[in-house]
């Protein structure tokens, strides 16, 4: 006698804001069309705050604004008929609302720290952007922020996957975001994430709705089968290879070749070398840039675009490798 079917996590919605693409399909095309090395950072136009109305917009920084605008297309459609404790927001970010953090820090260390605006203090915690979003949409379920550098969004996806599969959430809106404030650009350059011969820095927001039931919309039904992450304690590339091996095992794929392996991050080439058998490799960094905490979610969305275009049963692994961290996300159309 068999028990109930295990819960799965289907990609039931998505949103992307990237300087070169606003859809998964366009993201795939951009990933395949490298831009010249050494260019300046890829930035989005100023977010259109008018879509947010006037509520809760005081002291808002660029990264938070980008996230809130992206969520406007994802969260409200989920609210009909679903209790608000069954929808969670789970995102990765390398720097959070860095503009708020830097702004308040500069006031706090000035000769007159009492002149700092207490209203800006709330933005200095890295979970502030999601806190604002939860309040904005009246969501009262679990929420979590991860800030592990280039694998931050993979951490978020792993948590969201577990929350949906375990039944703690019906819908997890998950992904990654980072804005390119001046300090973020300087910081990424100092950390070696913006090499003259490498991908440009890029700001991006990627949101994915992971749901316990697939979207009723026509088209392929794509699920996330597993998320693995790992670390190279001594730095250097290669952590994603162990993450990929774990994700393959968890997905039950063994050593069967996947149809596409797509990689982002400073050590994307190493990720593709170590990810196991794949029929096609796509190193997406020169097309999409280095998007910091959004990297893993961008890689997933490129894979989604590829799987949808291909159609039929197929598998992909989305990889990130860099700064001693690695992640692998296994996706499939069953």
């Amino acid at each position: 006698m068999s028990g109930p079917a295990p819960r799965r996590a289907w990609i039931a919605g998505r949103a992307v804001a990237h300087p070169r693409a606003l859809t998964a399909e366009a993201l795939l095309d951009a990933a395949r069309a490298p831009i010249p090395a050494g260019g300046g950072p890829l930035r989005l136009p100023a977010p259109d705050l008018s879509v947010l109305g006037e509520r809760g917009l005081r002291h808002i920084d660029r990264a938070t604004a980008l996230l809130l605008v992206a969520l406007e297309g994802l969260v409200p459609p989920l609210l009909a008929g679903v209790p608000r404790d069954r929808i969670g927001l789970v995102f990765g970010t390398a720097a959070g609302g860095l503009g708020s953090i830097v702004g308040f820090a500069r006031d706090a260390v000035s000769p007159d720290p009492l002149a700092s605006n207490p209203g800006q203090f709330q933005g200095t915690v890295l979970n502030a952007p999601l806190g604002r979003a939860m309040i904005r949409h009246g969501l009262v379920g679990p929420t979590a922020t991860f800030s592990t550098g280039v694998t931050a969004a993979a951490d978020a996806l792993a948590y969201a996957l577990d929350a949906v599969e375990s039944g703690r959430l019906d819908h997890a809106v998950t992904g990654g975001f980072d804005g390119l404030e001046d300090a973020a650009i300087a910081g990424a350059e100092a950390a070696g994430l913006a090499r003259a011969d490498g991908p440009p820095l890029a700001e991006a927001v990627v949101g994915l709705v992971l749901s316990a039931t697939p979207s009723p919309a026509p088209g392929p039904r794509i699920r996330i089968a597993a998320v693995g992450t790992a670390c190279s304690p001594r730095g250097g590339p290669g952590a994603s290879a162990r993450a990929a091996a774990w994700a393959r095992r968890r997905a039950g794929w063994g050593t069967t070749p996947v149809d596409l392996a797509v990689a982002l991050g400073p050590d994307a080439a190493a990720a593709l070398e170590g990810c196991g058998p794949a029929r096609e490799h796509l190193e997406a960094g020169m097309g999409l840039g280095e998007a910091l905490g959004a990297d893993a979610a961008l890689a997933v969305l490129v894979a989604v675009g590829w799987l949808e275009r291909r159609g039929g049963p197929s598998r992909s692994v989305a990889l990130v490798d860099g700064c001693g961290l690695g992640a692998a996300i296994a996706l499939e159309i069953a």
Binding site: A94, S147, T148, G149, A230, G324
Partner: peptide, 21 residues
């Protein structure tokens, strides 16, 4: 993220590393 990586580097932790702010 440097906090998690710092612990991993010091003690040789090569499994998952996350920082939860």
């Amino acid at each position: 993220g440097t906090i998690g990586r710092g612990i991993a580097a010091r003690f040789g932790c090569a499994g998952p590393v996350s920082v939860v702010p």
